[in-house]
Write a protein that binds this DNA or RNA. Structure first.
Lengths: 154, 154
DNA sequence: TATAGGATTGACGTAAACGTAAAAGGTGCG
DNA sequence: CGCACCTTTTACGTTTACGTCAATCCTATA
C-alpha cells in the first residue's frame, strides 16, 4: 500500500483507496521526480495537459500521468509550445492506431525542426557579429591604454 | 535645404529651421530607412535610447540618432536587451576615452557570447532529440500502414 | 494541542518589444 | 474646402510559462 517505491520519500503515510496495485503519487513527489515545480504541474493541469485523479481535493498522479508529463517535457525540450503539445496529445486514442496523431506530430515536428535550424543560423550569425564587435572593442581599448604604441606605429 | 537625399521620398515639403547643413529626418523616413516601425522609434525614445530634436512636437532625427539606432539594432541582433543597450549607451561620453563604456560593453559581450553558445548547444540538443523522435514516429507510421509486412517478417 | 509540513484555489506579477486602436492636430494639393 | 497623409500622445493588449504571494485546510507527530 505504498505510494512510492521503497527507499524514496518516507514521509507519506496517507491511506489512499488504491484497490489495485496502482502507484499513486502526490504532487510533491511528482514534482521532485521530474524536476518541475508544483506550480508547473497545476499549470499543466489547468491547461488540460494533465488530469490526475483526486482524493478529495488532493491530486493523485498515476503512471499514465507520468507518461504524459514525460511527453510534455520532451515536447518543451524540443521547443514545442504547450498548445502544440496539447493538440497532439488530444488526438491520442488508446483504442485506435493513432495514425492521425502520428501524422500531426510528424508534421509539427518538421516545422519545428525548420524553426530550430533557422534559430541556429540566427544564433551563429549573432555569434559572428558579436565576436567581431568584441574584436573592435578590444582594439579600441588597446589604443586607449597604449596610445604611445599606436602613434609610434602610425 | 532638403530633409533627405534627392531621389528619396518626395513627399516632404516642410520648412524646417536647419541652420547648418544638418540632415533632419522625420519619423516616417527614419522608420523606412532602418526597417523599423514608428512605434518602435517612439518606444526606444520612451526607454531613453533615442533623443531626437523637436520642431514643435514633430520628432527630427539627425545622423547622431541614426548612429545610435544602428547601435541599438546591432545590440538587438546579437541578443542584448534594450536595458543592456541603454546601460552601455548611457556611459558614452563624447569628451572622454570611454574606457568604462568599452569595458562594460566587453564584459556584457562576453556574457552574451556565453549565453549564445549555450543556446546553440540547447538547440543542437533539441534538433537531435527531435530528429530521433521523428524517426520513431516515422517507424510507427510504417508499421501501421504496412502491418502485413511486419507480421510476415516476425 | 501546538506545530511543522504538505496541499488547495485564486489571482496578480513578470519578462520583452512592441501592436493596435483612439482621438486629434497639422499640411500641401487639387 | 476637403481629402489624404503624416504626426502626436495615451494607454490597453499580446505572447508564454510559469513565479509569487495570500488565505485556508488537512494531517501526522511530538
Amino acid at each position: 500500500m505504498k505510494l512510492v517505491s521503497p527507499g524514496e520519500a518516507a514521509a507519506n503515510t496517507n491511506d489512499i483507496p488504491a484497490e489495485a496495485g496502482e502507484e499513486f503519487v502526490r504532487i510533491g513527489e511528482m514534482a521532485k521526480k521530474y524536476g518541475v515545480t508544483l506550480r508547473t504541474l497545476r499549470f499543466y493541469e489547468d491547461k488540460g495537459l494533465l488530469n490526475p485523479h483526486r482524493d478529495g481535493s488532493t491530486r493523485l498522479y498515476t503512471r499514465r500521468d507520468k507518461a504524459r508529463l514525460k511527453l510534455i517535457l520532451l515536447g518543451r525540450k524540443v521547443g514545442f509550445s504547450l498548445r502544440d503539445v496539447k493538440q497532439m496529445m488530444d488526438l491520442y486514442d488508446p483504442t485506435g492506431t493513432n495514425t492521425k496523431q502520428l501524422r500531426l506530430a510528424l508534421d509539427k515536428s518538421e516545422n519545428q525542426l525548420a524553426r530550430l535550424q533557422k534559430q541556429r543560423a540566427l544564433i551563429d550569425d549573432a555569434i559572428g557579429e558579436l565576436s567581431n564587435s568584441m574584436s573592435v572593442v578590444r582594439q579600441m581599448l588597446v589604443e586607449r591604454t597604449a596610445p604611445a604604441q599606436a602613434s609610434a606605429a602610425g
